[in-house]
Each structure stands twice: as C-alpha cells, then as structure tokens.
Design a protein around this nucleic acid. Sequence first.
DNA 1: CACGTAAATTACCCGCAGGAAAGATAAAGT
DNA 2: ACTTTATCTTTCCTGCGGGTAATTTACGTG
Lengths: 222, 222
Amino acid sequence: MDARPPSSDSSPWLPFESRRRARDEKRDAVLRTAVQLFLEQGYHRATLNAVAERLNITKPALYNYFRSKEEILFECWALGQERVDGFIAEINARGGSGLVKLRQLVRAYAENMADDYGASLVRFDPRDLSEENRAIVRAGKKSIDRTFRKYIADGIKDGSIKPCDPKLTAFAIAGSLNWIGHWFQRDGAMPPAAIADEFTDRLTEGLAARPTKKTASIRRKR
Amino acid sequence: MDARPPSSDSSPWLPFESRRRARDEKRDAVLRTAVQLFLEQGYHRATLNAVAERLNITKPALYNYFRSKEEILFECWALGQERVDGFIAEINARGGSGLVKLRQLVRAYAENMADDYGASLVRFDPRDLSEENRAIVRAGKKSIDRTFRKYIADGIKDGSIKPCDPKLTAFAIAGSLNWIGHWFQRDGAMPPAAIADEFTDRLTEGLAARPTKKTASIRRKR
DNA sequence: CACGTAAATTACCCGCAGGAAAGATAAAGT
DNA sequence: ACTTTATCTTTCCTGCGGGTAATTTACGTG
C-alpha cells in the first residue's frame, strides 16, 4: 500500500525482512515510538494504529509486547521514574549538605525533564492508568516530593539553607522544574545541560544561607 | 426571585419547576459545571452526558448554549485568560518599579491558578481545540509570557531587580505558578491568598537587587 | 384561548479506536 | 522434510461518545 521510504527512522522492523530480532530491542522500540507520539499528540489522540504505522507494523503486532495501551503508557512513566530513583540514590550515597544535595537534585531532575521519558512524569495524566498503576505513580510522585522536602529540611538543619517552609519551597522548585517538561523542545536554542545549569542557580540562589558561588564546594560548617 | 434560594453551585434546572431563567445565567451554569468536571476527570474522560446529568438536563439541551464540546473547553480557557488580561491591565495602569509590578503579577496570577477557570489555562490541552481557537490560546500564552519578561527587564533596567536572563527567569517563575493549577485542591490546608503570598515572596526574594523589599533602588554594578 | 416560539426530551446515527480471533509466514528444532 | 512456535497480518467486533433529527412541552403574547 503505502510504499514507505526505507528510512522510517530506526524501526527494527524494516518493511518486510530481517524480522527476528531480540525481543527486548523491539519492545524498547515500541516504547520509544509510543512515548514520542504520546507527547506529540497527547495520549488520547495518539492511536495505536499510528504507533504501529511508524514502526512499519500493524496494530495487533503491538500486542505481542504489551497487553494494552495503558500498559505502554505506564511503562513510559516507569522508565522516567526509574531514572529519578537512580540519581536520588546516587545523591544520597554521595552525601553532603542539604544545599549541595538539593542542587544536585535540581540539576539532575531538570535534565531528566528534557528527556521523553522524564517528561512522561508530568505530561501524562495518571487518570488514564488503572487503579493499580495509578497507585504506583502516586507513590513515585510522593517519594520525589519527600526527597525535595528532606533535602531542604536537611539544609535548614545544617545551616546551608536559610529557614523556610520546606513544603511550599519544594512545591515552588518542583513546579518550576516540572514545567520544563511542558515547554522544552529538543530543537530549541538551549541544550538540556545549559537549562539545567541555569535552573540550578536560579532556583537555589534565594535559598542559600550565605552567598555561594556556583558549583564550587560548599563548606559544611556548623 | 427564587422561591427557594439555591446554593451557589446548584443547578438552575430544578427537576421540573422554575425553569425559564435568563439565558446567560444558564450558560454560565453549564460552563461552571463543565469546567469542574473537565478538571475532575480530564477533558476526554468527561462526557457531555455527565455534564448534563449534573445539571438535571440531557445532553442535547447543552447544544442550546454551545455549538460543540470544544467550544465549551475554549470558553473555560477564555474566562481564565480574560482575568489575567484584566489584572495585567490594572498593574500596568498602577505603574511602579519592575520588581513591584512583578510581585503584583505573581500574586494575582497565583491566586488565579487556585480558581477553576484560572487552572484551565494550564490544565487543558490546546491540541483539543480547533486550529482557530488554538491560535488564540497561543497568543494569550505568549502575551502573558511577554508580560513576565517585560516586568523583569523593566526591573533590571530600573535597578530593582538584579541582572539575570529575563527569558529563563520568566520560565522559572511562571512554571512554579502554573504548577499550582495542578496541585491545588480547594479543600486543602492553605487558602489561595496564603499560597499567593508565600509564592510572591519565595519567587521574588532571589531577584531583588537589594536584600529585601522596601527602600529606594541602589544601582549595583557588576 | 389559540398560536408561535424557545427550550427541552427521546430516539437515533456514525465514526473511531481498542482490542480479540483466526489465519499466514518465517525461523528453528527434530 | 515435517512440525512447532513465535510473530505478524487480515478481518472483524463492540462500546462509547459527540452530534443530529424529530418531537414534545411550556411559556409569552395578541
């Protein structure tokens, strides 16, 4: 039917040849294509037919890798969450003052927001998920929020951050960062790293107990 | 006028009496109910049947007041935008330093975000609108963004705000504020005014050229 | 009181997207 | 070579929700 140009980006399914390939690889390809389309058009407007078409396959083929559209949506979110959990663990492992940890978190989180899976954390609506998965999502969001608040509270305690309400401060910072997921375009003027750097300074400069210079070492004095 | 005083969010269509009422009043009631349901369930999940049911009428009756579901969505957004345009005009009329104007904008915008129509500005997806209406929405968002940037640039020029990149700073502030529309619940602990106050300080304290507000501007050379 | 009109209602249509069933095809095992 | 198994296609079903048509109800007015 549609004599599609052989390019079709990087689908493991070339029109009709070289079929068998690693299952996980194809599953990942489905996910990458799906998250792109979901972000482009919105979950409801994006159809599985359209996802399949981009992969040079047909809709029912998708059901070899996922049980439902909702499962695809959930896994997009899960990948984003996984990364956040990852760098939070790293930051915790490295230790440091509250302000230092907060700044690392802001930076990593901002960069993650400029990624498709990262943006999934805020661009998709949990109400599209099953009750089970929605509960998992809620737990994930809660965990991130707790981390922000904890770092802020830690900073107040150790004197690196001046006294403030951790809850509202966390909301303000997280809101700023989450919004990146809504306006960032990969073809924009600024690369993700630059945005992350800017936001790191902008969002924490008002919090430092003493004027601090950029990413230079923070002295923990008590 | 009314035999029995209806509570503010009760339907003007009591099952079978006192029907005829001012057309605009009913139109507004449809809008209020619709925006609530859209926010509760999301635009796609919320059906016109459900909207009608809450009003004690049936779906086709809605078409006496609106031409389509999309038109309802657009008007929800338009009402939110109208308010923003309103207080921006007021702030411009009052004048003042960049910082003063910015703080007023932040405060009013934050409060607006705690309102159904205000939240419409950020909770609904422009892609659900017709091309025409989407263009109007885009223009509105752009106008708000320009205002944020202008106040910041004004502040830098008049010395009330310390030098920074107006574009990213506007993004950071607007992001924080927009996010309120996603987490604020009317039955939460804090009233909108308190949140607005907190955010006003939190989001501008890092920007003031001089430690705190008050006092005349002092030129800071870098 | 009859009539016209606005605003409802009941009944219907239809297009679409998610998903299931059953048939094909290729690779791999025996 | 024959069978098996996973994978992909063709085909179809079904429910749902936006929107329309035809009909009724009720009020205002001459």
